[in-house]
Design a protein around this nucleic acid. Structure first.
Length: 276
DNA sequence: AGTGGCCCCTGGCGGC
DNA sequence: TGCCGCCAGGGGCCAC
């Protein structure tokens, strides 16, 4: 499940790749609904003959700057990935869009079809509504505490709200709350300055670790998931996510699973008490 | 402002 | 062994 670290990894890989400055010679749209806000023909015609000049990330969006001033936004959602392949290439059932250059192709691979590519002249319309970047120095503990103080929702729901803070998904939210020793159902405005500083620090810790491991340190491969939401026994650094019923790495209590904001939520009832 | 419901999709699972 | 039905999961949208 791509969250901020996975998108950051794709971003840095693309930035160093040959797609930057290469002429787009063809675009194959294999699943029309992957293209948002535009029909596939328009999408194709506007991209062919153009070049990508820049790649950046905002929240979970990849932001590709094009030489005509427009922007391609890519959101991987649940199952999307971007694959660079040398030509000639091998087609795949789950490729939804293929952007072809002279010597290589960029494939949007997305089994679940939730991912989106949006070609727009006004990226700010989509990106401007996002909350702050958790790793940005502009966000300090005081500002974060202030953000929490005005909100009466449960803290886990807020972490998943991209308008509140950008880039955190279900896995990193659970892991951050565990490290910060905060119950997912704590009401945001009840967090003390110390608790909110702990939370911001925990968020940065798990996101930085994710980036350092190229997005694979958490949820290391979906093949590790079992039907009950637990993880396989292969080593990884998840403390609570997908570990329902297994021992808390800190106190050995059984990890509990509940639903918060329609999302499965994993926590240690002993280390993360609702009442501080 | 906050929450819950629904939808999009498919692989992978449990149950039979 | 196979088929059916269910579910997870990010995020947009809508109703309350």
């Amino acid at each position: 499940m791509p969250e901020l670290p996975e998108v950051e990894t794709v971003c840095t890989d693309l930035r160093d790749s040959a797609i930057i400055g290469s002429l787009i010679v063809a675009v194959d749209v294999l699943w029309e609904r992957t293209i948002g806000m535009m029909d596939a023909d328009t999408f194709r015609k506007r991209l062919v003959g153009r070049k990508f000049l820049t790649v950046s990330r905002r929240g979970k969006f990849l932001v590709l700057g094009i030489d005509d001033g427009s922007t391609l936004l890519i959101h991987l959602r649940m199952s999307g990935s971007l694959v660079l392949m040398d030509n000639p290439d091998t087609p795949d059932d789950h490729d939804r869009v293929i952007i072809r250059f002279d010597a290589l192709s960029l494939r949007f691979h997305d089994p679940r079809k939730f991912g989106r590519m949006i070609l727009t002249d006004e990226p700010g319309h989509f990106l401007g509504r996002l909350g702050p970047e958790p790793l940005s120095e502009d966000l300090d503990a005081v500002a974060f505490h202030h953000m929490l103080l005005t909100r009466r929702g449960r803290v886990k729901a807020l972490l998943l709200d991209q308008h509140f803070i950008a880039g955190i998904g279900n896995i990193y939210a659970d892991e951050s709350l565990f490290i910060a020793r905060l119950h997912p159902c704590r009401i945001a405005c009840t967090l003390s300055a110390v608790e909110s500083a702990r939370l911001l620090s925990a968020i940065r810790q798990v996101l930085s670790a994710g980036i350092a491991h190229r997005g694979t340190s958490l949820g290391d491969g979906e093949s590790n998931f079992k039907s009950d939401g637990s993880m396989g026994s292969h080593g990884n650094s998840l403390s609570v996510f997908g570990r329902t019923g297994r021992q808390c790495p800190r106190c050995s209590s059984p990890i509990e699973r509940t639903i918060v904001a329609q999302r499965s939520t994993h926590f240690c009832p002993h280390c993360q008490p609702l009442q501080p």
